[in-house]
Structure formats: structure tokens, C-alpha cells
């Protein structure tokens, strides 16, 4: 107990460097676990399909198919890190897609429409944040209202799907830059960019550190003079904005907007974030982990495709993995509570 005090043990450098790693990066362990699961799945699939599974185009397609989910997961990570939850993201993505598509149909240029879509998402996020922060409404109820609102508004725009013909929106998806067998689309780059920006925000700004502080202990964060109220509000705005951007990407991906898009996507997003090692009680987790979580999700989907079995197994497997991670988290939290 006292070894870390005044006179640290100098005898064993090997042990202490490992110890040092553990004390610095213990919260990365769930991320490594997610990576291990990902690797194990790939190896397992590779063996099962006699080496006929893994290929550069396949990996490229996982990023392509899940770029919208990746963007949503980044936003969700911010909210969950504060100890909240945002159930509205799927509906907001769908609504902004509908709204954007209808504006494009009316002849507005995509340079105007895309920012409007982001703003719509941000606005709904702001509303949820206000309910949570200033009226003490539980996050899941507040975001539920946001989900209802966005779902309904999507149908207000149109009951049927709207085809998107705008070339610059479609360009996001159609253009593929090839590097040998590998390829990447603008949506993929956009998603990776969001991950990078999210990671930098969380690691290198006061806003980011306050997000962690709020999730760790809101009261303490306030005592330290950190802007708690503004930060919590902003977390929902970030999530809403990401949902708006996901709306753009998803519209590009499907080439059309449909009001029933994205049902259940909020659950996929939460599952991906949790599998990626973010604690649901807040305060611990990484955007990069959420990215791994999304890749795990994508890999499960791909493998199930390869197996040719029913796609419903995706949901069941994700549910099972989510349960596994939640139980493990519960054990970790219980153990650290006992240590105190």
C-alpha cells in the first residue's frame, strides 16, 4: 500500500514499468479486449472459410457500410461519458436525411442543405440537453422525447421515400479512391475524420476533460470550477450534430431518404460504444474504442453474411456481446467499489 509513497521501490524496473502502464492506461483494457475479440473473430472466420474470408475489399467495405454508425458512435460516446444516454440518434439521422432530401428535391444546393441538416441535429440535441441539464429530466426520457419528435417529423416531411439525385451528395459515396485492392470513399474518410476530431477534443481540450470529469463525479467537477452545465449540454449537442452528419452520410449511402430508416440504430450505436469499452456509468472510455466497437459490429454482420445464415443473428450476437460487456463492467465497478 505504501510502496507508491515517499520511497518508491527501485529494485525491480521490469515490474514497475508494467505497473506504470497499468496505472496509466487501465481504462484502455476494455478497448484491448474489444480488439482481441475483433482479431479472434477474423482469425476464426479465416479458418472456418479456409482462408477465403479476409481480403482488402472486404475490410474496405466494412468501413464503407458502417461509416454512418461510426459517426453516431462518436457522438454517443460523448453523451455516455457524461453518464447519460441518447436514444434519439437513429430517429434524428432519419429525420435529417428526410429533411435534407426534401430540400435538395426543392432545388436547394447541397452546400446549404448539408449544414442545415447538421444544424437540425444540433438543435434537437440542444433541446434534449436543456431538458436533462436544466429540468432534471432523466436522459433516457428526454432523449426518448427527442426520438419521438424526430421520428414524427420525418413522416411530416414525407410518408414515402425521397430519391436523392444531387451529385455532390452522391459523390460522397460513389467516388472510391483505390490503393491496390483497398479502397476508401469520402463517407469513410469523413467518418474517420469525425473519430479523429472526437478523440482530439476529448484528450486535448478542457471541454473534453470536463466530459470525463462530469462522468466521474459531477459534484467534484463543479467544485473544481469546471463548467459542468455547459459541458453536459454540449455533449448532447455534439451527439445531435453527429446524428445530423450521419443523416448526410446515410442519405449518400442509400441514395434516398426513407422515414423508417434507422429504426433500432440507437441500440446498435449504444451496443457498439459499450463493446468498445466505454463504461455506461460514465467517466471512462474512448472514441477509438467506439470505433473498434463499430468494427466488431460490422465484422459480425459480414461474417453472418458469409455464413449465409439469417441476418437476425447479428442482433442476437450483438445483444449477447453487449450483455457480456455489461456484466464484465458491473464486476469491474463492484470490485473497485469494494477496494474503496
Amino acid at each position: 500500500m505504501t510502496s507508491t509513497q515517499v520511497a518508491p521501490a527501485r529494485e525491480s524496473h521490469v515490474v514497475s514499468s508494467r505497473h506504470r502502464f497499468m496505472t496509466r492506461h487501465a481504462s484502455w483494457i476494455p478497448v484491448f479486449a474489444a480488439i482481441a475479440i475483433l482479431v479472434a473473430m477474423v482469425i476464426g472466420a479465416q479458418i472456418y472459410f479456409d482462408g477465403d474470408f479476409l481480403s482488402p475489399p472486404l475490410i474496405s467495405s466494412i468501413l464503407l457500410d458502417n461509416s454512418y454508425l461510426l459517426i453516431l458512435a462518436v457522438g454517443m460516446t460523448f453523451v455516455i461519458l457524461t453518464g447519460g444516454i441518447d436514444l434519439s440518434v437513429g430517429a434524428v439521422m432519419s429525420f435529417t436525411g428526410m429533411f435534407g432530401a426534401s430540400l435538395l428535391r426543392d432545388g436547394l444546393p447541397s452546400g446549404v442543405v448539408a449544414p442545415v441538416m447538421l444544424a437540425c441535429g444540433a438543435l434537437i440535441g440542444l433541446g434534449i440537453g436543456v431538458l436533462v441539464q436544466y429540468f432534471d429530466v432523466q436522459p433516457f426520457i428526454a432523449s426518448l422525447a427527442g426520438m419521438f419528435l424526430a421520428r414524427g417529423l420525418g413522416f411530416v416531411v414525407s410518408l414515402n421515400s425521397i430519391k436523392v439525385t444531387d451529385s455532390s451528395i452522391l459523390w460522397l459515396q460513389r467516388t472510391r479512391w483505390h490503393f491496390g485492392d483497398w479502397y476508401v470513399t469520402a463517407t469513410g474518410i469523413l467518418a474517420l475524420l469525425v473519430v479523429a476530431v472526437g478523440a482530439l477534443l476529448l484528450a486535448y481540450t478542457r471541454f473534453g476533460r470536463t466530459i470525463y470529469a462530469v462522468g466521474g463525479n459531477e459534484q467534484s467537477a463543479r467544485l473544481m470550477g469546471l463548467p459542468v452545465a455547459r459541458t453536459k449540454l454540449l455533449a448532447y449537442v455534439v451527439s445531435g450534430t453527429c446524428a445530423g452528419l450521419a443523416g448526410v452520410v446515410f442519405t449518400a449511402y442509400t441514395g434516398a431518404a426513407y422515414p423508417l430508416n434507422g429504426i433500432g440504430t440507437e441500440l446498435d450505436t449504444i451496443a457498439a460504444v459499450v463493446i468498445g469499452g466505454t463504461l455506461l456509468i460514465g467517466g471512462s472510455g474512448f472514441v477509438v474504442g467506439s470505433m473498434i466497437g463499430v468494427f466488431v459490429y460490422g465484422m459480425i454482420k459480414t461474417i453472418i453474411n458469409f455464413l449465409g445464415v439469417d441476418q437476425s443473428w447479428t442482433r442476437i450476437t450483438i445483444g449477447g456481446l453487449l450483455l457480456l460487456f455489461v456484466v464484465v463492467q458491473r464486476v469491474i465497478v463492484a470490485r473497485s467499489a469494494r477496494r474503496r
Binding site: R209, A213, G216, N217, G283
Partner: peptide, 16 residues
């Protein structure tokens, strides 16, 4: 202790 157990020692000292 009114600190943030999930953050680093450095942040607990300097944050704010």
C-alpha cells in the same frame, strides 16, 4: 475525497 478517480493525478491537481 472530492476528486475525480477516473482521471489522472496530474489532471486532478491542475484541472480548472
Amino acid at each position: 475525497i472530492d476528486l475525480l478517480p477516473n482521471l489522472t493525478v496530474a489532471e486532478n491537481i491542475a484541472l480548472g
